[in-house]
């Protein structure tokens, strides 16, 4: 039987590499709702249409933290249009496995990136 959290997901939860803020972020996206307990802020730094740096702050369960970290890893270095194509399924696949009720956390991470891009574009 598969463990509810893959080792990779656990590693991203226990030792996230992309947490924190970007002081001079070009876009900031805030998503989540207190009712389900997950609040996520995504920061992006953009240069020539490419996401140069991406960081997160997340209050939430292990899945929310792991997917936050993973989307930063996957989106960094990509053109914005490419990064926006990352689906929640891509995140889940890359992490290995998440417990079924937690899959919405990957959706949250994807929405976080979208919100950050939106804030970046509104500033342009």
């Amino acid at each position: 039987m598969k463990k509810p959290y893959s080792e990779k997901a656990m590693e991203h939860f226990l030792n996230p590499k992309n947490m924190g803020e970007i002081d001079d972020a070009d876009g900031i996206g805030e998503v989540g709702n207190p009712k389900c307990g997950d609040l996520m802020t995504i920061y992006i730094k953009v240069k020539d249409g490419t996401i140069e740096d991406m960081r997160f702050k997340t209050l939430g369960c292990a899945a929310a933290i792991a997917t936050s970290d993973m989307i930063c890893e996957m989106a960094k270095g990509k053109k914005i249009e490419e990064a926006l194509k990352i689906t929640f399924q891509d995140l889940v696949d890359e992490l290995g496995s998440l417990p079924a009720p937690k899959v919405h956390c990957a959706d949250l991470a994807q929405r976080g990136l979208k919100a950050a891009v939106k804030s970046y574009e509104s500033k342009k």
Partner: peptide
Amino acid sequence: EGESLVMILDQEGISTSTGSACSSKTLE
């Protein structure tokens, strides 16, 4: 968050639980 705490404690061999029902389907 409660469930994250439970999981970190579990990594260290300590079993606790959370009042948070985030693992249930309702997420309430």
